[in-house]
Design a protein around this nucleic acid. Structure first.
Lengths: 162, 162
DNA sequence: AGATTATGTCAGTACTATTGACGTAATTTC
DNA sequence: GAAATTACGTCAATAGTACTGACATAATCT
């Protein structure tokens, strides 16, 4: 069962290797832009949840605003992201991807999606669902609300297309 | 299907959240020792593959020796890891965990294992196998040899107990 | 003997993250 | 309407992890 001392070393190790290789694909592309992983994460979430505010982004990424500042500034300066004043609360800055930003987000996601697809290629819907369920169950319960797994949960949130 | 533009954003995002929370448990413990994630990874592999050489460790972690140096030195100075001159090749340094090192490695692995167990608790052997297969398939094919999934592949390697 | 290998180390740099402090504008509260 | 709070931005200092390049030493191989 590959369990020693009651510890599941096998999956611990697999998770490490899997995530490392999973992130290596976009890393190569990012290097061409002088960007790092932090830029990727910001761009990903801005693209996924267009119109989210700075505070919401900080909450999702679980980093400080000082950490976000540099990265977000670079994405704005390079015309990948734009900030719009919040309509309800003018203190807020709603973040949106530009066409250029969407294109980069897509380019970064493509190899990752290909890798996932390849890993699931011989599997049916069952395995895909199981993997999704497993990954979701690995997330801290309090934070599961942050996740938009599919269109079902999406509708509950207020930041849709805009 | 939560797939837009043919991109599997759902699993991409789940993988990010899952890995973030997965690493957060040991991070808290490591902070008490003044260690970081790099120390965890080194200690993990030294504990898992006692007697591995510096070169093998570098190959598994995919980092440079300069990056390893600081971390490994600290683990040796704090009596978590010992180096023994290689028996066949005296240039090599075989790395072994001390009792203290094994204890820490175990303490770090415990919450991760608990999390995995909880995520799989309602599942049978099938789901566990599927998750393992998925994670393994996410790893670059060339690198799968590095992984000891279970006792089956373990026996093929030369570094067992010592 | 000379080349190669395994490891260690010094120096400089980059990226991502942190804490703490302060400023400004907008909203909320009393 | 004045005061407190909130959302965001920014400056400064620090830490952890990684990189490239260069050089040194000892051991092994050719």
């Amino acid at each position: 069962m590959s369990v020693e001392d009651g510890i599941d070393f096998a999956i611990i190790e697999l998770f490490f290797f899997a995530y490392r290789d999973f992130t290596s694909d976009p890393d190569q592309i990012l290097a061409d832009y002088g960007f790092g992983r932090a830029h990727h994460r910001v761009l990903h979430f801005v693209n996924r949840r267009p119109g989210l505010t700075v505070a919401e982004l900080l909450d999702v990424l679980k980093i400080t605003k000082q950490s976000l500042a540099r990265v977000l500034k670079q994405l704005i300066d390079t015309d990948h992201v734009v900030q719009l004043q919040g309509p309800r609360d003018r203190r807020q800055r709603e973040l949106y991807p530009t066409a250029k930003g969407r294109a980069l987000a897509l380019a970064l996601a493509r190899p990752q999606s290909r890798r996932i697809h390849a890993a699931l290629q011989d599997s049916g819907t069952t395995e895909r669902t199981m993997v999704e369920r497993f990954l979701e169950a690995m997330v801290n319960p309090e934070l599961r609300a942050q996740i938009d797994v599919g269109s079902a949960k999406m509708s509950g949130k207020s930041h849709g297309e805009h």
